[in-house]
Protein backbone atom coordinates (compact mmCIF):
# COMPACT_ATOMS: atom_id res chain seq x y z
CA UNK A 1 0.00 0.00 0.00
CA UNK A 2 2.64 2.50 1.05
CA UNK A 3 4.89 1.17 -1.69
CA UNK A 4 2.30 1.86 -4.34
CA UNK A 5 1.77 5.46 -3.37
CA UNK A 6 5.52 6.00 -3.36
CA UNK A 7 5.92 4.62 -6.89
CA UNK A 8 2.92 6.56 -8.04
CA UNK A 9 4.32 9.77 -6.66
CA UNK A 10 7.67 9.02 -8.21
CA UNK A 11 6.35 8.27 -11.69
CA UNK A 12 4.16 11.35 -11.46
CA UNK A 13 7.29 13.28 -10.56
CA UNK A 14 9.20 11.77 -13.45
CA UNK A 15 6.61 12.64 -16.06
CA UNK A 16 6.43 16.09 -14.55
CA UNK A 17 10.18 16.48 -14.95
CA UNK A 18 9.95 15.18 -18.53
CA UNK A 19 7.21 17.73 -19.25
CA UNK A 20 9.35 20.50 -17.77
CA UNK A 21 12.18 19.47 -20.07
CA UNK A 22 9.96 19.46 -23.12
CA UNK A 23 8.66 22.86 -22.11
CA UNK A 24 12.14 24.33 -21.79
CA UNK A 25 13.29 22.76 -25.05
CA UNK A 26 10.28 24.24 -26.87
CA UNK A 27 10.92 27.65 -25.35
CA UNK A 28 14.56 27.34 -26.36
CA UNK A 29 13.70 26.45 -29.95
CA UNK A 30 11.45 29.48 -30.24
CA UNK A 31 14.14 31.67 -28.72
CA UNK A 32 16.51 30.42 -31.43
CA UNK A 33 13.89 31.23 -34.07
CA UNK A 34 13.63 34.83 -32.90
CA UNK A 35 17.36 35.24 -32.43
CA UNK A 36 18.42 33.59 -35.69
CA UNK A 37 17.99 36.65 -37.96
CA UNK A 38 19.92 38.86 -35.56
CA UNK A 39 22.65 36.23 -35.29
CA UNK A 40 22.85 35.90 -39.07
CA UNK A 41 22.97 39.67 -39.51
CA UNK A 42 25.74 40.01 -36.97
CA UNK A 43 27.91 37.17 -38.25
CA UNK A 44 27.41 38.18 -41.89
CA UNK A 45 28.43 41.75 -41.06
CA UNK A 46 31.71 40.46 -39.63
CA UNK A 47 32.64 38.28 -42.61
CA UNK A 48 34.51 39.18 -45.77
CA UNK A 49 32.63 38.89 -49.05
CA UNK A 50 34.73 35.84 -50.03
CA UNK A 51 33.80 34.05 -46.87
CA UNK A 52 30.13 34.90 -47.42
CA UNK A 53 30.21 33.40 -50.91
CA UNK A 54 31.97 30.20 -49.90
CA UNK A 55 30.72 29.67 -46.36
CA UNK A 56 27.40 28.76 -44.82
CA UNK A 57 24.72 31.22 -43.73
CA UNK A 58 24.90 30.25 -40.07
CA UNK A 59 28.64 29.64 -39.81
CA UNK A 60 30.63 31.84 -37.46
CA UNK A 61 33.11 34.15 -39.20
CA UNK A 62 36.56 32.61 -39.61
CA UNK A 63 38.34 35.94 -39.86
CA UNK A 64 36.47 38.67 -38.07
CA UNK A 65 36.67 41.95 -39.96
CA UNK A 66 35.05 45.28 -39.23
CA UNK A 67 35.50 46.58 -42.78
CA UNK A 68 31.81 46.18 -43.53
CA UNK A 69 30.90 48.24 -40.49
CA UNK A 70 33.29 50.98 -41.52
CA UNK A 71 31.89 51.02 -45.05
CA UNK A 72 28.30 50.97 -43.80
CA UNK A 73 28.93 53.91 -41.48
CA UNK A 74 30.96 56.14 -43.77
CA UNK A 75 31.40 54.77 -47.28
CA UNK A 76 28.41 52.85 -48.60
CA UNK A 77 26.52 54.28 -51.54
CA UNK A 78 22.91 55.36 -51.30
CA UNK A 79 22.38 56.03 -54.96
CA UNK A 80 25.00 58.48 -56.26
CA UNK A 81 26.33 59.59 -52.89
CA UNK A 82 28.76 57.36 -51.04
CA UNK A 83 29.00 58.67 -47.51
CA UNK A 84 27.55 55.68 -45.72
CA UNK A 85 24.77 55.87 -43.19
CA UNK A 86 26.43 58.49 -41.01
CA UNK A 87 24.72 61.64 -42.32
CA UNK A 88 21.35 59.90 -42.38
CA UNK A 89 21.78 58.64 -38.85
CA UNK A 90 22.15 62.26 -37.74
CA UNK A 91 19.17 63.26 -39.90
CA UNK A 92 17.08 60.74 -38.01
CA UNK A 93 18.34 62.12 -34.71
CA UNK A 94 17.55 65.68 -35.84
CA UNK A 95 14.05 64.59 -36.84
CA UNK A 96 13.27 62.31 -33.91
CA UNK A 97 14.48 64.39 -30.96
CA UNK A 98 12.43 67.57 -31.55
CA UNK A 99 9.43 65.63 -32.87
CA UNK A 100 9.38 63.42 -29.79
CA UNK A 101 9.74 66.36 -27.43
CA UNK A 102 7.07 68.52 -29.04
CA UNK A 103 4.52 65.74 -29.50
CA UNK A 104 5.02 64.51 -25.93
CA UNK A 105 4.63 67.99 -24.46
CA UNK A 106 1.50 68.69 -26.49
CA UNK A 107 0.13 65.26 -25.65
CA UNK A 108 0.64 65.91 -21.95
CA UNK A 109 -1.21 69.23 -22.08
CA UNK A 110 -4.01 67.80 -24.22
CA UNK A 111 -4.38 64.74 -22.03
CA UNK A 112 -4.49 66.95 -18.96
CA UNK A 113 -7.30 69.03 -20.46
CA UNK A 114 -9.31 66.09 -21.74
CA UNK A 115 -9.01 64.11 -18.51
CA UNK A 116 -9.29 66.82 -15.88
CA UNK A 117 -10.79 70.00 -17.36
CA UNK A 118 -13.75 68.51 -19.13
CA UNK A 119 -15.80 71.06 -20.96
CA UNK A 120 -18.71 70.59 -23.30
CA UNK A 121 -17.47 68.91 -26.43
CA UNK A 122 -14.16 67.74 -24.92
CA UNK A 123 -15.16 64.12 -25.40
CA UNK A 124 -16.02 64.64 -29.03
CA UNK A 125 -12.70 66.35 -29.58
CA UNK A 126 -10.92 63.46 -27.94
CA UNK A 127 -12.83 60.90 -30.01
CA UNK A 128 -11.94 62.76 -33.19
CA UNK A 129 -8.27 62.77 -32.20
CA UNK A 130 -8.45 59.09 -31.33
CA UNK A 131 -9.96 58.11 -34.67
CA UNK A 132 -7.17 60.07 -36.29
CA UNK A 133 -4.65 57.58 -34.86
CA UNK A 134 -6.04 54.78 -36.92
CA UNK A 135 -6.19 56.22 -40.41
CA UNK A 136 -3.86 54.65 -42.92
CA UNK A 137 -1.42 57.46 -43.65
CA UNK A 138 -1.74 56.87 -47.38
CA UNK A 139 -4.91 58.89 -47.20
CA UNK A 140 -3.02 62.05 -46.18
CA UNK A 141 0.16 61.61 -48.23
CA UNK A 142 -0.90 63.56 -51.30
CA UNK A 143 -2.41 66.62 -49.60
CA UNK A 144 0.49 66.68 -47.14
CA UNK A 145 3.00 66.72 -50.00
CA UNK A 146 1.16 69.67 -51.53
CA UNK A 147 0.86 71.49 -48.20
CA UNK A 148 4.53 71.03 -47.29
CA UNK A 149 5.37 72.45 -50.70
CA UNK A 150 3.21 75.51 -50.08
CA UNK A 151 4.74 76.03 -46.64
CA UNK A 152 8.21 75.82 -48.16
CA UNK A 153 8.93 72.74 -46.06
CA UNK A 154 9.02 70.14 -48.84
CA UNK A 155 12.01 67.86 -48.51
CA UNK A 156 13.26 69.50 -45.32
CA UNK A 157 13.90 68.17 -41.84
CA UNK A 158 11.55 70.72 -40.19
CA UNK A 159 8.89 69.45 -42.60
CA UNK A 160 9.37 65.88 -41.38
CA UNK A 161 9.36 67.01 -37.75
CA UNK A 162 6.08 68.76 -38.41
CA UNK A 163 4.52 65.69 -40.00
CA UNK A 164 5.59 63.42 -37.15
CA UNK A 165 4.26 65.85 -34.53
CA UNK A 166 0.89 66.20 -36.23
CA UNK A 167 0.32 62.48 -36.70
CA UNK A 168 1.78 61.56 -33.32
CA UNK A 169 -0.55 63.87 -31.40
CA UNK A 170 -3.44 61.43 -31.29
CA UNK A 171 -1.39 58.74 -29.60
CA UNK A 172 0.45 61.00 -27.17
CA UNK A 173 -2.86 62.60 -26.13
CA UNK A 174 -4.36 59.14 -25.67
CA UNK A 175 -1.47 57.99 -23.48
CA UNK A 176 -1.62 60.99 -21.17
CA UNK A 177 -5.39 61.11 -21.09
CA UNK A 178 -5.62 57.47 -20.00
CA UNK A 179 -3.03 58.13 -17.31
CA UNK A 180 -4.49 61.36 -15.95
CA UNK A 181 -8.03 60.04 -15.96
CA UNK A 182 -7.08 57.76 -13.06
CA UNK A 183 -6.12 60.76 -10.91
CA UNK A 184 -9.13 61.82 -8.79
CA UNK A 185 -10.76 65.06 -9.93
CA UNK A 186 -11.02 66.21 -6.33
CA UNK A 187 -7.34 67.01 -6.55
CA UNK A 188 -7.92 69.69 -9.17
CA UNK A 189 -10.94 70.97 -7.31
CA UNK A 190 -9.03 71.29 -4.05
CA UNK A 191 -6.14 73.04 -5.78
CA UNK A 192 -8.56 75.45 -7.45
CA UNK A 193 -10.07 76.29 -4.08
CA UNK A 194 -6.56 77.06 -2.91
CA UNK A 195 -6.27 79.51 -5.77
CA UNK A 196 -4.01 77.55 -8.11
CA UNK A 197 -4.61 78.05 -11.83
CA UNK A 198 -4.57 75.73 -14.80
CA UNK A 199 -0.84 75.80 -15.43
CA UNK A 200 0.15 75.88 -11.80
CA UNK A 201 -1.84 72.70 -11.11
CA UNK A 202 -0.32 71.02 -14.13
CA UNK A 203 3.18 72.08 -13.23
CA UNK A 204 3.22 71.31 -9.53
CA UNK A 205 0.73 68.44 -9.21
CA UNK A 206 0.42 66.56 -12.47
CA UNK A 207 3.87 66.81 -13.96
CA UNK A 208 5.64 65.37 -10.88
CA UNK A 209 3.29 62.37 -11.07
CA UNK A 210 3.87 61.85 -14.77
CA UNK A 211 7.32 60.34 -15.03
CA UNK A 212 6.18 56.80 -15.94
CA UNK A 213 3.82 57.95 -18.67
CA UNK A 214 6.37 60.41 -20.02
CA UNK A 215 8.84 57.54 -20.35
CA UNK A 216 6.24 55.36 -22.07
CA UNK A 217 5.27 58.14 -24.47
CA UNK A 218 8.83 59.17 -25.29
CA UNK A 219 9.80 55.57 -26.02
CA UNK A 220 6.72 54.97 -28.12
CA UNK A 221 7.18 58.15 -30.14
CA UNK A 222 10.91 57.64 -30.55
CA UNK A 223 10.45 54.08 -31.82
CA UNK A 224 7.69 55.15 -34.20
CA UNK A 225 9.61 58.09 -35.60
CA UNK A 226 12.99 56.39 -35.80
CA UNK A 227 11.48 53.39 -37.58
CA UNK A 228 9.23 55.41 -39.87
CA UNK A 229 9.72 54.82 -43.55
CA UNK A 230 6.54 56.00 -45.26
CA UNK A 231 6.80 59.69 -44.29
CA UNK A 232 10.57 59.60 -44.68
CA UNK A 233 10.48 58.29 -48.23
CA UNK A 234 7.55 60.50 -49.25
CA UNK A 235 8.64 63.85 -47.83
CA UNK A 236 12.45 63.89 -47.92
CA UNK A 237 14.98 64.57 -50.61
CA UNK A 238 18.60 63.59 -51.27
CA UNK A 239 20.20 65.30 -48.26
CA UNK A 240 17.44 65.03 -45.69
CA UNK A 241 16.52 61.35 -45.77
CA UNK A 242 16.13 59.50 -42.48
CA UNK A 243 18.16 56.39 -41.81
CA UNK A 244 15.46 53.89 -42.81
CA UNK A 245 15.27 55.39 -46.29
CA UNK A 246 19.07 55.44 -46.60
CA UNK A 247 19.28 51.80 -45.46
CA UNK A 248 16.75 50.77 -48.05
CA UNK A 249 18.70 52.67 -50.71
CA UNK A 250 21.97 51.00 -49.73
CA UNK A 251 20.42 47.53 -49.78
CA UNK A 252 18.64 48.08 -53.07
CA UNK A 253 21.28 50.09 -54.89
CA UNK A 254 22.12 48.21 -58.02
CA UNK A 255 25.53 49.68 -58.78
CA UNK A 256 28.65 47.62 -58.27
CA UNK A 257 29.14 44.36 -56.39
CA UNK A 258 26.45 43.38 -53.91
CA UNK A 259 28.07 43.73 -50.50
CA UNK A 260 25.89 41.67 -48.20
CA UNK A 261 28.13 42.23 -45.21
CA UNK A 262 27.75 46.00 -45.61
CA UNK A 263 23.97 45.63 -45.93
CA UNK A 264 23.84 43.69 -42.68
CA UNK A 265 26.12 46.10 -40.80
CA UNK A 266 23.97 48.99 -42.05
CA UNK A 267 20.79 47.24 -40.93
CA UNK A 268 22.21 46.71 -37.44
CA UNK A 269 23.33 50.35 -37.23
CA UNK A 270 19.82 51.47 -38.19
CA UNK A 271 18.33 49.16 -35.58
CA UNK A 272 20.72 49.93 -32.72
CA UNK A 273 19.05 53.01 -31.17
CA UNK A 274 15.62 51.42 -30.85
CA UNK A 275 17.10 48.08 -29.78
CA UNK A 276 19.06 49.89 -27.10
CA UNK A 277 15.94 51.64 -25.86
CA UNK A 278 14.15 48.29 -25.82
CA UNK A 279 16.89 46.54 -23.85
CA UNK A 280 17.24 49.38 -21.34
CA UNK A 281 13.56 50.22 -20.89
CA UNK A 282 11.71 47.16 -22.17
CA UNK A 283 9.05 47.37 -19.50
CA UNK A 284 7.96 50.83 -20.67
CA UNK A 285 8.22 49.82 -24.30
CA UNK A 286 5.75 46.98 -23.74
CA UNK A 287 3.45 49.24 -21.78
CA UNK A 288 3.31 51.62 -24.71
CA UNK A 289 2.63 48.78 -27.13
CA UNK A 290 -0.23 47.43 -25.10
CA UNK A 291 -1.60 50.80 -23.94
CA UNK A 292 -3.83 51.27 -26.93
CA UNK A 293 -4.97 47.68 -27.15
CA UNK A 294 -5.56 46.40 -23.62
CA UNK A 295 -7.72 48.33 -21.28
CA UNK A 296 -6.68 48.91 -17.70
Amino acid sequence: MTDMTVTNARSGGLSKIALRWILYILLGIFALYYLMPLFVMLTTSLKSLDEIRTGSLVALPRDVTFDAWRTAWSGACTGIQCEGLQPYFWNSVLIAVPAVMISTLLGAMNGYVVAQWRFKGANIIFSLMLFGCFIPFQVVLLPMATTLGKLGLAGTIPGLIFVHVVYGLGFTTLFFRNYYVTIPQELVKAAKVDGAGFFRIFWSIFLPLSLPIIVVTVIWQFTQIWNDFLFGVSFSQAGTQPITVALNNIVNSTTGVKEYNVDMAAAIIAALPTLLVYVVAGKYFIRGLTAGSVKG
Binding site: P37, D263, A267, T274, Y278, G282
Partner: peptide
Protein backbone atom coordinates in the same frame (compact mmCIF):
# COMPACT_ATOMS: atom_id res chain seq x y z
CA UNK B 1 14.88 36.87 -20.55
CA UNK B 2 12.78 34.70 -22.85
CA UNK B 3 10.09 37.36 -23.12
CA UNK B 4 12.70 39.92 -24.03
CA UNK B 5 13.99 37.65 -26.79
CA UNK B 6 10.53 36.93 -28.20
CA UNK B 7 9.54 40.57 -28.30
CA UNK B 8 12.64 42.39 -29.53
CA UNK B 9 11.72 42.24 -33.25
CA UNK B 10 8.90 44.64 -32.44
CA UNK B 11 11.51 47.31 -31.69
CA UNK B 12 13.01 47.00 -35.17
CA UNK B 13 12.07 48.96 -38.22
CA UNK B 14 10.26 46.92 -40.87
CA UNK B 15 13.05 47.99 -43.20
CA UNK B 16 15.58 46.25 -40.95
CA UNK B 17 13.38 43.16 -40.70
CA UNK B 18 12.91 43.10 -44.45
CA UNK B 19 16.64 43.50 -45.06
CA UNK B 20 17.48 40.64 -42.71
CA UNK B 21 14.95 38.23 -44.18
CA UNK B 22 15.82 39.21 -47.72
CA UNK B 23 19.32 37.99 -46.97
CA UNK B 24 18.21 34.83 -45.17
Amino acid sequence: VIRTIYLYPMALSMIVTGTAWKWI
